[in-house]
């Protein structure tokens, strides 16, 4: 019983970790690659072109 509860809560924290890391990754790609704010766009400009992001 105890082991089952433990592994269940372990599974839940694994899913949370996966979701958290996935969301952070998406957030980084969105902000660094897609956000159109002027300064950010200029700073990331060359990398966006070189990695094939839609830039302008």
């Amino acid at each position: 019983m105890t082991t089952q509860t433990l592994s269940l809560s372990g599974l839940r924290s694994d899913i949370l970790a996966l979701a958290a890391v996935g969301l952070i990754g998406l957030g980084i790609v969105f902000v660094a690659g897609h956000a159109q704010a002027g300064a950010l766009h200029d700073a990331a400009h060359d990398v966006r072109h070189a990695t094939g992001f839609p830039c302008h």
Partner: peptide, 19 residues
């Protein structure tokens, strides 16, 4: 800035890949 943003973008990709 290119080095910084390249490292950022690939770190974002890496997070999605390891998930």
């Amino acid at each position: 800035l290119s080095v910084l943003f390249s490292a950022l973008i690939y770190t974002g990709y890496a997070m999605l890949l390891v998930v």
